[in-house]
Write a protein that binds this DNA or RNA. Structure first.
Lengths: 251, 251
DNA sequence: CCGCGTCTGTGACATGATCACCAAGGGGCT
DNA sequence: AGCCCCTTGGTGATCATGTCACAGACGCGG
């Protein structure tokens, strides 16, 4: 199956340059598209940068779309407008580990990496976990903005720095913390309305463990009265206890 | 004990701006210091950037010096001229994991991170493993070069991208590969003259395992005739076998 | 030679990953 | 309803790894 980015990037590059003939003259006066004005990150950029982005067409992706897989070439720079993208590492045995999630206004560091330095190939897998709108900035425009637009550059750099910090933290958790702590941390972080809606297999992938282990740990939590499990959801009956466990492992 | 960077950064910032009065006039004509001309990375920069770096004074550090520890504030941007710096993550129990090593011409990503985005505090520990010369670029000069010198910027960005790629690979190895594979990979990578000179405790820290485990694994290798161990060194008697093991885990 | 610190080896045990199954829920179909 | 089949969750056995406790080996300086 052709993966969505291939289509996306072609659509984007086709529509990107000069909309209806004249390019530079009316650049300043043309109104900005909604998707730029409404994005916290983009609305803060310099007008010239906004104008050069204005020709791009945001794309909508359904939940569960695969943006790229390991080995795919990097097509362009993805900027999320709404929704959520999760970036996973996949091991030989099929086990997975969530590296980071891309929230609205954030960019996918993997694409930056591919455009700026590395071998231009992805080593990870990206999946939308909600219906997601994004723009795909083609390579040339991205590099040109990096040179010409200081605010754009700073945005990218800050994102990069933040991700790197996150990766180091993740490494610390994965290498030095028990599954029990990581699970407690995950449950408290992802809880909404006192519950987490995810299968045990999904939870395992998020924290880089195995499904069976999650099953047993949740069972242990349940025996302590901290959670109640149900097909597809975990109810937190004692969030305080979970939070305490999560924090004391982090110290 | 006061750690070296505190001294370094003060020395560097003190010497950095305007050497002997006049600044801009003779900037072009003043000869470049050796340490810039001889550094592959720096000698490729634009002359203006080189001139602004020229006032800095390289510092020499003995082997084993601690550049920073977790919690230290980031003082400036470290650029290694010669030697080698290793950056470690340390767990609660004292176990360690080598995140990356900084070779000559490379910069320390942790410092970049601290200057550009994060909380400005280190979460890792950096130690020189050889006698090392480096320059410490103060924050202001670094940020100004980032804005004004495209080549400098590209250098930093490329380094950043490379490190990020390395971190992802590391995560993959640590999460999904057996200790045996990682050990074999480490031994083949670090071998010189058919041997690796390191204590088993050091090896454990490099690949993020425990000393006892390394002891047993090396014993297993030895029984297969692949290595011979000696106090403080491991002799590779069958590098081919080790390489095969290392590669087949990576596939 | 002795004493001490460092490096290494080893057994016992705890945790986590993997494998092989099975059982329970739930939706679609006849 | 009855059946099928897929997804999800549960469980025991076993293996890999990390942790703890401790002992022996080595080397160095007094």
């Amino acid at each position: 199956m052709p993966h969505p980015f291939a289509r996306l990037s072609r659509a984007a590059t086709a529509c990107a340059p000069r909309a209806r003939g004249a390019t530079t003259p009316d650049m300043e006066t043309r109104p900005l598209p909604d998707w730029i004005a409404q994005s916290g990150a983009l609305s803060a950029l310099e007008p010239q940068a906004q104008a050069r982005l204005a020709g791009l067409v945001p794309q909508a992706l359904p939940r569960g779309a695969v943006l790229f897989r390991p080995g795919d070439p990097v097509e362009g720079f993805a900027l999320v407008l709404s929704g959520r993208i999760e970036v996973f590492l996949t091991g030989a045995n099929g086990r997975e580990l969530l590296l980071y999630a891309v929230a609205p206004g954030q960019s996918c560091v993997q694409t930056t990496l591919g455009l700026l330095g590395g071998d231009g190939l992805y080593s990870t897998e990206a999946i939308t976990t909600e219906e997601t709108r994004l723009v795909l900035v083609p390579r040339g425009l991205f590099l040109s903005l990096m040179d010409a637009a200081p605010l754009f550059r700073q945005m990218i750099f800050a994102a990069f720095a933040e991700r790197m910090g996150g990766m180091i933290q993740l490494m610390e958790r994965v290498s030095f913390q028990s599954v029990e702590c990581r699970l407690a941390e995950y449950l408290t972080r992802r809880a909404e309305d006192g519950r987490v809606q995810a299968t045990q297999a999904e939870i395992a992938a998020q924290i880089g463990s195995a499904r069976e282990v999650i099953s047993r740990r949740l069972d242990a939590f349940a025996r302590r009265g901290w959670v109640r499990t149900e097909r597809g959801t975990v109810w937190l009956t004692d969030p305080q206890a979970l939070r305490r466990l999560a924090l004391d492992g982090a110290a």
